[in-house]
Design a protein around this nucleic acid. Structure first.
Length: 204
DNA sequence: CCACGGATTGGCT
DNA sequence: GCCAATCCGTGGA
């Protein structure tokens, strides 16, 4: 971790920029949840971008609803949704008012709160060595490990409960770009970004 | 009111 | 590699 930037929280202006710019720059930043002193954190290593104005896979494609309304606000808020009857997924809202854009956090490299993440994910305290790469390598796993639920819908990322810490921008040579995973519409958009040298990504 | 299916995961073949 | 689990937002009748 770079000491110069470890404690500098990302501000509103980081999030209100263009979707794809923010998506790519989120790689390497530190995602932090501090809920009553219980701290979880991890390096963002994999994301996907969603834009309702052009992207049929985005939850905002068909207009505003109660579920997606936070995505139509300004950037810098958390959009949490529930899917497949089992999983929550976290997104960072981006752009200006009514842009309907957000970045799905698909994987983290755990930093703090790892023992509690292990218990949240597996219901036990000890894991095999290879299981540490299975803690937060998927959007549902990230939320399960950090206890992120619908209660965190709309949290302001410039506040103190869930926020991101700045880190140096990642060199393009370390970033891979691909099609997004698990969608059935707009499948060819190259809007998935991940660190190609990191073992915590959900898949290469 | 009811039917459909999903930005996933984990277990089984 | 294939597929069921499981709930609720969404859209049509």
């Amino acid at each position: 971790m770079n000491p110069e930037s470890t404690y500098k929280k990302l501000e509103r202006k980081f999030y209100t920029r263009n979707l794809l710019t923010v998506a790519k720059e989120l790689l390497g930043k530190i995602f932090v949840k501090n809920d009553g002193g219980i701290v979880f954190s991890g390096i963002i290593v994999e994301v996907e971008a969603y834009d309702g104005s052009v992207d049929e896979a985005a939850h905002t494609y068909k207009g505003k609803t109660k579920r997606n309304e936070i995505m139509f606000g300004i950037g810098g808020f958390l959009y949490v949704y529930f899917t497949y009857g089992a999983h929550f997924c976290s997104n960072v809202v981006t752009g200006t008012q009514d842009s309907g854009t957000a970045v799905l956090i698909r994987a983290l490299e755990p930093l703090e709160g790892i023992n509690r993440m292990i218990f949240n994910r597996f219901g036990r305290d000890l894991i095999k060595e290879k299981e540490k790469f299975n803690l937060t390598n998927g959007p549902g796993k990230v939320c399960k490990a950090m206890s992120i639920t619908k209660d965190h819908y709309g949290v302001d990322l410039t506040g103190n409960k869930i926020f991101l810490l700045d880190q140096p921008k990642i060199n393009d040579a370390r970033i891979s770009i691909s099609k997004r995973i698990g969608i059935k519409k707009s499948v060819d958009l190259p809007w998935r970004f991940y660190l190609n040298d990191n073992p915590y990504v959900s898949r290469k």
